[in-house]
């Protein structure tokens, strides 16, 4: 079951050229009190997006109507810090399906892959190219092609390959998740557990 499958995504992008964006910024801890996976997009980047009186901060990119799209582009070391999957949920719930950066924190990258958000790691120079292109023309579109494992700036055709292991790629293409896989090999796991004392 799990999540939407991912094949090819063509979309404009929202640029966030800040480094070390941590998961406390993506979704602050005080919004982690829910017991269901609902509504996290409303609080995505809460403290960068809203003043303390809940009025929007006009200089933050999500409050700038010029930028929109299903792709979020972040600076180096995106998603560091806490393991909260809520950060990936918030990104998904807001409407993003892909995050592009020159470097991702481990747990965040895993969490994205587990819910069907594609983390695309590009070189620092290509990241700079993307930021520049979108700044110049916010309507510039990116083409993220999972089967080909490439990300392309439509206007110029500039393109870069990205890595993903073939197991995860297959999962995303089909919308499978790890629990589906693990459930299918349960007898093997039970056998292993029998030899592994508590």
């Amino acid at each position: 079951m799990a999540y939407d499958s991912f094949h090819i995504l063509q979309s404009t992008a929202v640029p966030l050229p800040i480094e070390n964006v941590d998961t406390d910024q993506i979704i602050p801890a005080r919004f982690l009190k829910a017991t269901e996976r609902k509504g996290f997009g409303d609080n995505l980047f809460r403290d960068w997006r809203y003043n303390q009186d809940d009025t929007p901060k006009t200089d933050f990119v999500l409050n700038n109507a010029t930028y929109s799209g299903k792709i979020l582009i972040g600076g180096h070391n995106f998603g560091s810090g806490s393991s909260r999957e809520h950060a990936a949920w918030a990104i998904y719930d807001y409407g993003f399906r892909c995050v592009v950066s020159s470097f991702f924190a481990d747990i965040f990258r895993n969490n994205c892959l587990n819910i069907g958000v594609l983390p695309v790691q590009v070189s620092p120079s290509f990241l700079a190219t993307l930021f520049h292109a979108i700044e110049t023309d916010p309507s510039a579109e990116l083409l993220v092609d999972l089967p080909q494992q490439t990300v392309t700036l439509k206007a110029t055709g500039q393109s870069e390959p990205f890595e993903i292991n073939s197991y995860k790629k297959e999962n995303l293409l089909n919308g499978y998740d790890d629990i589906d896989y693990l459930n299918n090999i349960k007898p093997e796991i039970v056998n292993f557990a029998a030899q592994t004392p508590l």
Binding site: H86, N165, I189
Partner: peptide, 22 residues
């Protein structure tokens, strides 16, 4: 090590997670 909620569900259901070796 720390895991996300999807993995918490995996461990509850199957006592396993799926991770490339670091």
């Amino acid at each position: 090590f720390g895991i996300g909620t999807s993995e918490v569900e995996m461990v509850l259901a199957t006592q396993c997670i799926m991770q490339p070796k670091p």
